[in-house]
Each structure stands twice: as C-alpha cells, then as structure tokens.
Design a binder for these strands. Sequence first.
DNA 1: TGCTAAGATTCGAAAACTCGAATATACTAT
DNA 2: ATAGTATATTCGAGTTTTCGAATCTTAGCA
Lengths: 114, 114
Amino acid sequence: MTQELRRFKAEIFQALAHPTRIAIVEALRHGEMSAGQLNEQLGLEQANASQHFAVLRSKQVVVSRKEGNQVFYSLRDPILLEVLNVLKRYFYSQLSHTMSMLKEIRMDKGTLKK
Amino acid sequence: MTQELRRFKAEIFQALAHPTRIAIVEALRHGEMSAGQLNEQLGLEQANASQHFAVLRSKQVVVSRKEGNQVFYSLRDPILLEVLNVLKRYFYSQLSHTMSMLKEIRMDKGTLKK
DNA sequence: TGCTAAGATTCGAAAACTCGAATATACTAT
DNA sequence: ATAGTATATTCGAGTTTTCGAATCTTAGCA
C-alpha cells in the first residue's frame, strides 16, 4: 500500500510537472472556468491546451462539466492548492537562501579587493 | 516572475515525479542517510539509485555531504515533507471518494438484480 | 439540411526520461 | 603501488512527453 501510495503521489506530481498545467490549476483557484476562457487568459494554443486538460483529467486533478457548446473545468479537490502554496513558500526560502549566498560571495570579493 | 515561479514549481514536481525518488525523500524524513543505506533500505540498484540522487541534487531537493568513502544525503528543506503529507491526505480523500462510488455501484447492481 | 464555434483526438517528429551494463572516480587499507 | 569499497558518470535502447498540424465530434443556429 505504501508502494501504491508512492505511485499515486508520483502520478500527481507528474500531472503538475509542467508550467502550463500549473498555470491551469492556479487559474482554477477561484472556481471553474471554460476551456476557452483558460486558453485566452493563459495564451494557449487550443490543441495544446486540450492535451494538457486531458492529462489533468486523466490524473483526476480536474473535473469537467459540459454546458451546451462549452466545457467547464474545475479542481477536483482544492487541497492541491495547498501543495502549490507550500511550494511558493519553499521557492521564497530557496530564493533568500540563494541571495544570502550571493551576498556572501560579494562580500568575499570585497574583502579580497581591499 | 510568476512565470518563473511556475517553472520552478514544475521542476520540483518533476523531481518528485517518480516513485523511487519519493521513496528517497521519505526515507530522509528523519535525517541524513548514506547512499548505501538508502540503496539497501529501499532495495535499489546502485547505478539507478545514483541517477535518481543526481536528479534530486540537480533540482536542489537534497544536498550531499562527503565523509571519507561515503556520501550522505539529506533534505535541503524539510518543508517538502509537508507537500508529501498534503498529498497523503489527498490520496485518502480520493480513496474514500472512490470507495463510496463503488458502494453506490454495488447498491445499484443489488437493486437491479432484485 | 448545411454552417460555424468549442473542444477533443490523432499523428509524427523532436525532446526528455528511465534503466541496466559498463566504466570511471575517489577513498581506504594493505 | 595494488586491491577493494562506495559512489558517480556515460552509453545505448526503449519508453514517455510535448508540440503543432490536421482531423474529428458535438451543439447551436440559419
């Protein structure tokens, strides 16, 4: 089961392992949107976007609902937004880490120049 | 920048998008371990494991430290464990969702058979 | 019945990933 | 120096992803 759980997690990560798909998930943060709206807002090619939707659907990250001519997507479980938020924190902590490293390097250079 | 952030997130997800690498990260939950310990505990081939270590290193998920003959790995930032924990919750919520769906289906079949 | 708009699917090529086998590197001990 | 142990890297084959182009499919409308 723990093996199974890891496979499951890996699949979710896989589903999110593309900037475009992350953009889609983030765009759905506040509720459902139609495929067309997403394409326009994110500046995506129709076919390409549809392929990314398919990936997200197949991994159950989003669900779709048909209304007349169009298809509306929404997050299946908003808990995934938490994942993205944690990563944002991670990003900034990495960033500040990197920046303080850069600062140190600059300071070293400074002392050397003296 | 938001574009950059998405690329960054995608890279992290990519790094975690493999059951073996998830296993490695989880094994490092309680602190550093040598490559050999990891290989043994997780039952990995030496070369394959080393390749996965390289991926995790390149995406800055783990850091390594050399001590004599061996190399010790540890998580660069334990915040990533939170990501995995959130996903575990997600997994179980999906699971119970699926199971209640199955139950419904069984109930339908039951009524039909009657 | 045709026409159009919204999406999905299929196809082929290029790129990226994954694995085991072989080889290389770095230490340690003899 | 030589041998052995721990780990990394390279290589080649097989698989998967990604993309744009072209082609469906479906719903709404004249």
